[in-house]
Write a protein that binds this DNA or RNA. Structure first.
Lengths: 249, 249
DNA sequence: AAGTGGTCTAGACCACTAT
DNA sequence: TAGTGGTCTAGACCACTTT
């Protein structure tokens, strides 16, 4: 019945990972209470018959997992549950793009337009410069789910443009299959009421609450090359996070 | 002009961290293109005059940062930008709670109520069991920002209840100052239109789009002890994430 | 002075991939 | 077989905190 408390040298699971799980389990079961001190690293070395570097790596991982915190000269302490460092992974969004059978991306509109003030600012362009506007609709089982609008710098020299014109390239960013030549991106998420034309696309009511995931991508010269946003109504997708100590990973 | 390309042994910055920055800078400036292979770990050892473990740690960090990926027997490769693994940190929310001068939490209501079907299910209780309902309002510079509603298991034996009754305990979860005895928590974020009484509290219009951050906390026996949600209108707070290679951290 | 975490060495051995 | 990443050792030295 009692869980494993020694390190199996024949296991495929490396020693540091086994030790992480042993200690996590001890914390989860109350052997080590929140706020209390863990055995010193030297003690852990002796107890589990591993080298200092292995214990070190274990402790580092526990720190990364927000399970413990270390204080030089003092010790390693079990962290109480806090929401400070948690993060939302948009895994539902990723899974959506991964499922190529049910999920389809269709191009709705491509136009060359004059950048308005907002677009000029976001793409760091002179006013009234020409830019490319693209709008796409993502459907799941023929039902509209997600609306994407994007402005791209209009420059025939840049291969980015053609890559982005591809209807499937949207998903590439999420699944990692795309070999985009962006260096970095800035994302922010907010809520907004659906505008009339968005609602029409998504077959919902105007004014319905929706997520708005804005993105700006930069090329390797640190110039903004793309600005746009994903719009999707609430309820269709939601984002979750787990904090504290969960047994399963 | 040219950036540092050697490791300063007298620096307070550890060797592995310096090497991480050197390689990040090289990737950012195009020395190593996305998809291309990094020098082997043995080569990096020679070039920067560090031990294999130090290079190993460097590579591990770059992998964690989603900058490179490793393949045993093949090499280490620069990752193209992908949104697959990014996460939103709710730092704005944390900062809000940290600023005790401008941010105040006030208790609006505490009641003992009979759990309805939803609450019973969420807290894993028999129907019509008594539970504690708490609602709090968080204001910033006297302006209402955030509305919190929560159901707690009613059990005088549990010290959790008293701790949670404290008006300031809400912030404790976010800033880490609170010594809560929860083991783990499940969070999810969605959008919803403000209900009338929420809108009234927040001095906004009913139907306005708002974030809804739902939380369930579990005690050390893995029983749900608290279920509730934060409501805050869009625009007041937004969450951001950075992906790819940024110079500043 | 003793104990703690933090960094680092200079190798060893293993598993995997290419040739 | 040679090269690659992945794990691990058994120490060393340092900075910090406590006694």
């Amino acid at each position: 019945m009692s869980a494993k408390t020694t390190i199996d040298r024949d296991s495929y699971e490396p020693a540091y990972a086994q030790l992480v799980n042993i200690i996590r389990r001890q914390i989860a079961s109350g052997v080590f209470q929140p706020g209390s001190r863990l055995p010193s690293e030297a003690q852990l070395c002796k107890q589990y018959e591993v080298s200092p570097m292995t214990v070190r790596r274990t402790v580092n991982l526990l720190v990364e997992q927000d399970v413990v915190s270390t204080a030089q000269g003092k010790g390693t302490f079990v962290k109480p549950l806090e929401l400070g460092a948690f993060s939302f992974h948009l895994q539902e969004l990723q899974e959506l793009f991964r499922d190529r059978e049910r999920t389809k991306v269709t191009l709705r509109e491509v136009r060359i337009v004059n950048a308005d003030d907002t677009v000029s600012e976001k793409l760091d362009l002179p006013a009234t410069e020409k830019v490319i506007y693209i709008s796409r609709l993502l459907t799941r089982d023929q039902a509209p789910l997600l609306y994407h609008q994007q402005y791209l710098i209009y420059d025939p020299c840049r291969p980015i443009v053609e890559a982005e014109m591809d209807v499937t390239s949207l998903g590439g960013l999420f699944t990692g299959s795309g070999d985009t030549s962006f260096k970095k991106g800035l994302l922010s998420i907010d809520v907004a009421a659906l505008e009339a034309h968005e609602a029409a696309c998504l077959r919902t009511d105007a004014g319905a609450p929706a997520f708005r995931l804005e993105h700006t991508f930069y090329d390797f010269d640190d110039r903004p090359a793309s600005w746009g946003w994903l719009t999707f109504p609430g309820g269709s997708l939601s984002f979750s996070a787990r904090v504290g100590i969960w047994e399963e990973r």
